[in-house]
Amino acid sequence: MEVRTIKVFTTVDNINLHTQVVDMSMTYGQQFGPTYLDGADVTKIKPHNSHEGKTFYVLPNDDTLRVEAFEYYHTTDPSFLGRYMSALNHTKKWKYPQVNGLTSIKWADNNCYLATALLTLQQIELKFNPPALQDAYYRARAGEAANFCALILAYCNKTVGELGDVRETMSYLFQHANLDSCKRVLNVVCKTCGQQQTTLKGVEAVMYMGTLSYEQFKKGVQIPCTCGKQATKYLVQQESPFVMMSAPPAQYELKHGTFTCASEYTGNYQCGHYKHITSKETLYCIDGALLTKSSEYKGPITDVFYKENSYTTTIK
């Protein structure tokens, strides 16, 4: 009895394709271990004539594949690729409408935090270190965002349907971005203890939790000093293409032309909904596939993004 075979390709990165001759009487799992086709788990399936010449994702289970996976995804987590594939199996079914010149995501599976993050990423200057993220990001900007969303979920250790947080998501993504040249110098002034300067680099240099107003941050924000008295913390120097200011959701007025974009969060910790506000020729609110415009805006804002380049204080 002759062994019926077909020729397929296996890959971990969709760049390096490895030619395989597979036995049609055995499952993919018996031949390769966990195997995925377009995100779908085909591990328990036997090869079919229609699979001839198709590319299958496999887990990096030998040295060659491990090197290829690390170079593309910059992670050695053995569960990463499987999590990416199972997320992709959902995100490829989502709709990605162009809204006001940006790629958004039609609401499904509690994905409003991903839509808000995706919209924000198209408006701030950011370059990702893992080629996987950078490639998928370019495709997302062009309207094909399924891979990018699935990668975000995998890097953030999230599953489809789980509630997510924009600030946490951005923080994970910033860790995989090139923020080497970003720098922030802060000064804390206390009447009792004097003053202390701190220099922050990388992710810490672009994120701040405690106030939404970048102007206020430049002037000074009140913080408790270690001595128990009130101290003032203010920005001395900022070198970065953008800054992200966050605070627990509270009524906040966004003035046209003073910011790049913002995240609105309605609801409580267990259950809520994100919308995205962007400042173009007027203010726009993007909620999944829905767009509304207004000249002014007041609502429960939790993150505001500002364009920056270089700032030095005039406070002496």
Rank of each mutant, 00 (worst) to 15 (best):
S294P: 11
G267M: 15
Y265D: 01
D303C: 11
N61T: 13
K54I: 10
T198G: 04
T91M: 02
Q237L: 12
G194S: 01
K106G: 13
G257Q: 05
Y84P: 01
F305L: 06
H256M: 13
L17E: 11
N110A: 05
G228K: 05
I277N: 07
L17G: 05
Q216M: 09
P300G: 08
T55G: 04
Q197R: 13
M85C: 06
V304M: 07
T27E: 14
A231N: 03
V42A: 09
I124S: 04
E168Q: 11
A69N: 08
T27M: 09
V21D: 11
I277L: 05
K93S: 09
G288R: 03
M245C: 08
A117C: 10
T5S: 12
M207P: 04
C112M: 06
Q237E: 12
G164N: 12
E52L: 10
V203K: 14
T116E: 12
G164D: 00
Q134I: 11
Y234M: 09
T43L: 03
L126N: 00
T260I: 12
L153F: 04
F80K: 02
M85R: 10
A136I: 01
T260W: 09
G202M: 03
E204S: 13
M209G: 06
L186P: 03
I6S: 09
K127G: 08
Y155C: 02
D180R: 08
V8E: 00
T302K: 02
L114Q: 04
E144V: 04
D303F: 00
D13K: 04
H74C: 04
N157A: 05
M26A: 10
H273P: 04
L186H: 09
V243T: 06
Y155P: 01
S310K: 08
N49Q: 13
V185Y: 06
K307F: 06
R66D: 06
T11S: 06
T232L: 13
A177C: 15
K127S: 10
F9T: 06
V22R: 01
P300C: 15
I105C: 02
A40H: 10
L235D: 03
V58G: 00
I124H: 05
A150G: 02
D38Q: 10
A40Q: 11
L254R: 03
A154I: 00
Q31T: 10
Q230H: 12
T302M: 00
S263G: 04
V42T: 06
M209P: 07
M207G: 07
S295F: 12
D77N: 04
P78E: 10
T11D: 02
P78A: 14
H48M: 10
T75C: 09
Q197W: 07
L151W: 01
N178E: 06
G33S: 00
K316I: 10
P130K: 01
N111S: 01
M170Q: 01
S171W: 13
A247T: 09
G164Y: 03
Q251C: 09
C227V: 02
A69Q: 15
S79A: 06
V3I: 14
V67N: 12
K280Q: 13
N178H: 11
G202L: 02
Y72G: 08
G164Q: 04
I286T: 02
G161R: 01
I315R: 11
G228M: 04
G194W: 04
E239L: 09
C182S: 08
V189R: 09
Q270I: 10
F32Y: 06
P241E: 15
E253S: 10
T43H: 12
I277G: 06
G220Y: 02
T226Y: 07
A140L: 11
T103K: 01
N14Y: 08
F80S: 01
H273T: 06
Y36N: 02
C156A: 11
K44H: 15
P224V: 13
T91A: 05
V99S: 01
E2R: 09
P78L: 09
G210E: 04
S104N: 00
R139E: 11
Q30H: 13
V99A: 05
N61S: 11
Q251V: 12
A145P: 13
T302D: 05
P47M: 00
C193N: 01
Y172S: 14
V188C: 08
Y252W: 09
T11V: 02
V22F: 02
P130W: 01
K255L: 08
K201F: 15
S86F: 03
H51F: 02
Y138I: 13
T258S: 11
E264L: 02
I315N: 10
T55R: 10
D180F: 09
Q175V: 00
S310C: 11
T64G: 11
W107Y: 15
T282R: 12
V42K: 08
F217I: 13
Q238C: 02
K275E: 07
V189I: 12
L17A: 00
C227E: 03
I301A: 06
K92M: 12
D23I: 12
T314W: 12
G39D: 07
E71H: 06
S213P: 07
M207E: 06
C193Q: 05
A250G: 12
C193G: 03
P130A: 12
L121Y: 02
D135V: 09
C149W: 03
V99M: 10
T282W: 06
V203L: 15
S181T: 14
L212M: 07
S263P: 03
P34Q: 04
D77A: 06
T198A: 12
C149M: 06
H51N: 05
P130T: 13
K191T: 14
K183L: 08
F148L: 12
L254V: 04
T312D: 11
M209D: 15
N89P: 07
